[in-house]
Amino acid sequence: MAAGSTIDALGQFELHPVLGGLGEALRFSQSPLMMIVASVAVLAFLYIGMRPRAVVPGRLQAAAEICYDFIHNMAVDTIGPEGRAFFPFVFTLFFFILAGNYLGLLPFSFAFTSHVAVTVALALMVFVLSVIVSLKAQGAKFFAHFMPAGAPVALAPLLVPIEILSFLSRPVSLSIRLFANMVAGHVMLEMFAAFTIMLAGLGLIGDALAVGPVVINVALMALELLVGALQAYVFAILTCIYLREAVAH
């Protein structure tokens, strides 16, 4: 951590075995632990929220219903009627990422979405699914999309590779965006927290100045709450957009 005069902003992303000897033996780090916590938190929220099954919902049930409605509308509005089939996938993806982003903001916690291995796995899952759905819905016509309609045939050697690269860049942008946003946010939080400690070491004037980074960190925390929700939303809506193109003929 940030002790003394050095700032170790990236140390927070290192993985350590957790849960003592068992974790050591299984190579079980914070990342999968937080994934399990996130999944359990989402499932518990939905289960406990929907248990009353009231016609007029209470607060928790209303929250659970809003979450369901939000993603359901997103999937159906974006993908179309076929979106109903992909709704469970989008819902899981959105709340897994959202819970991961938000749990990562808790003290002594770990944001598993800040690891590129995790976000690449999620993005590849979306990408492979969209390719499979495309091939199933459109067959060989899927490959015709790589040649823009109406373009001169002479330009095909230039346009087709660019279209293919553009298509292949989807999982890259999907994963880099989420991972970079989470890393940047956590590094900023760590930096300003370290400034506070460093300033507090300077005596009386430092104590007064150290309030500044604390105030900034409070604002950053609000920003991170926005970014966490926004990145989960962007990931989910892009999944919907890719699937819409996949099911469109």
Binding site: L165, S169, R170, V172, S173, I176, R177, L230
Partner: peptide, 13 residues
């Protein structure tokens, strides 16, 4: 927020 990463992603690939 998407625009920047979209651009970089193409280059990265």
């Amino acid at each position: 927020l998407r625009a920047g990463t979209e651009m970089v992603a193409g280059l990265v690939v």
